[in-house]
Amino acid sequence: MHIPPYHKKESWQRFFVGALIGAVIAYCIVMYMYGSMYEKLFAEILDLQDKVTELKNHNDALLKAKEDLDTPITVEKIEVDIVNDKELQLDNDTLMKQQLEGLIKKEIDHIVGQDVTIVSESDKLLESTIENKEISIDEFTYSFTVTKLAIITKTVIIEVKGEVSN
Rank of each mutant, 00 (worst) to 15 (best):
I152V: 10
F144V: 09
K66M: 13
E107R: 14
S128Q: 13
E79A: 08
K97L: 12
S122F: 06
L48A: 15
E54P: 00
V17D: 10
S120V: 02
I137F: 08
C28S: 09
E87I: 06
A43Q: 12
E121C: 06
A19S: 14
E79T: 11
V17L: 12
K86D: 06
K66C: 03
N84G: 02
G18W: 05
Q49T: 13
E44P: 02
K40Y: 14
N59H: 09
L20D: 07
V24M: 14
E134P: 00
T129F: 00
I135C: 04
V112S: 03
T141R: 13
D81W: 01
L62D: 12
I3E: 07
I73H: 04
D85I: 04
I25P: 01
A23W: 13
D93W: 03
A43G: 06
K97Y: 03
E127V: 09
E39D: 09
I73C: 01
M33A: 15
N132S: 15
I21A: 13
N57V: 02
F16N: 08
I78E: 03
I137Q: 05
T155S: 05
V17F: 13
I25K: 02
V164I: 15
I137A: 05
K86G: 02
H2W: 03
K66P: 00
A61N: 07
Y27P: 00
S136I: 09
G35V: 02
T71P: 00
E139V: 08
I158N: 01
L62I: 15
D138S: 15
Y34S: 12
Q98L: 10
L149E: 03
G22I: 10
L90I: 11
V112E: 03
V164Y: 07
K9H: 12
E159H: 07
G102C: 03
I151R: 00
K9N: 10
L63C: 11
D85L: 05
G35T: 07
K56I: 07
L63F: 14
M31K: 15
L62K: 15
K64D: 08
E121F: 13
L62E: 14
N57Q: 08
A61I: 08
K66R: 11
I104W: 01
V52Q: 13
W12D: 06
K105T: 10
S36Q: 13
V156A: 03
V116D: 00
Q98M: 12
L48S: 13
Y32N: 11
D68H: 06
E134G: 06
D70E: 09
I135N: 01
L69T: 12
E139W: 11
T153Q: 10
